[in-house]
Design a protein around this nucleic acid. Structure first.
Lengths: 195, 195
DNA sequence: CCACCTATCTAAACAGCGTTCAGTTACCCT
DNA sequence: AGGGTAACTGAACGCTGTTTAGATAGGTGG
């Protein structure tokens, strides 16, 4: 349908929530989280300012929905990355690199995914999609570790890698290529280190 | 002086920039970054809304100043933590734990330190104070590593540890005590891992 | 086929926000 | 003692997200 993206012939939009998420991510990509506003988005989408709040409650709710979608996209990118890896440990690294590259592959979504203060991190659907992506890394990590290792030890290592990856995505002092080299070293250290 | 904290007898405040930073951190600690506003802060401090902008340019400038102060406090906490460590590697871990504990030791400052989008990360003084703290960790790490190791290898490991620490501070899925256990494992892995 | 009924969206108003600017006040230096 | 400068005031501006009552469309049961 043409009215999915913007504009409409009818009074009802057709699929406003979807259009708001998509166009919202586009606005975020263009203007950054700074330049984002509900009013700009409403105008772009061809509805009134009040329309979004009916579906998402608040601006935070909408941004949370965008971030949720972002984690679904990350989840998919992680699948793609892992499928072309040669070994279990390479799969783990490839997944982390997919995380790091979200900024360039999905700019609008990444803007809000990595700024937890902009959204409601306790939202049920958001947490579910974020945990699904994390769980995927954890599973891949388990496959790269000796089967004798206890589950909670694996979980600890997964969190260490996830935290490092997130830190590298967020901190401005480290550029892209260097981040990827660092995460390779971190993963290698976690795989080879003592129990 | 009594007018340092709030109120004043004279037309001029006396030391408004300092008062704004201190009271700003207090407001952040009470209301969070959400509830923070320049107007509330101005009222608390006993000046007009326009007064802060004369010293800090913008709200972002003020928050940047608060974050800068925060990194100075972190720097000090890292000194304290390292001084009571028994070994070079313990010193590194203690410094990271000091980082993780900023949320509880200096709530207001931490609020803005870890939300880089609220401030101007390119600010000269801010970068200097952040890099000073990071450099301190890097130096401590070098002392815990074999002297044969190349400087850029040390830098890489320092960034890995710093990123992991930051990630643990920011991500909501990991609680305090667990974060500390994880960072111990990360440091140990970086110290013991391959060159 | 029509009448309802409910979800959807509009239009307008509101309070709060950061920023700007001309003007007033106090301090410092000569 | 006087003049210049830095500090702060007071008021206005434009923009923000949220709220409310009302208009409209679409699906559903008679």
């Amino acid at each position: 349908m043409a009215q999915d993206q913007q504009g409409r012939d009818t009074y009802h939009h057709g699929n406003l929530p979807e259009a708001l998420v998509r166009e919202g991510a586009r606005l975020l990509a263009e203007a950054g989280a700074e330049g984002f506003s509900l009013r700009k988005l409403a105008e772009r989408t061809g509805v009134t300012v009040a329309a979004p709040s009916h579906h998402f409650g608040s601006a935070k709710g909408l941004l949370t929905a965008i971030a949720t979608r972002g984690f679904e996209k990350l989840d998919h990118q992680m699948d793609v990355a892992a499928s072309s890896a040669n070994s279990p440990s390479d799969a783990v690294i490839a997944m982390c690199i997919a995380y790091l590259r979200m900024r360039t592959t999905h700019p609008g979504y990444a803007d809000v995914m990595f700024q937890l203060n902009l959204l409601d991190a306790r939202d049920e659907r958001f947490r579910a999609s974020a945990f699904r992506a994390f769980g995927k890394l954890e599973t891949a990590l388990a496959a790269a570790l000796p089967t004798s290792l206890a589950a909670d030890q694996i979980a600890l290592k997964a969190k260490a890698i996830w935290a490092a990856t997130h830190g590298l995505s967020v901190l401005p002092m480290i550029d892209g290529p260097e981040s990827e080299r660092i995460i390779e070293a971190v993963v290698a250290a976690q795989l080879g280190g003592s129990p």
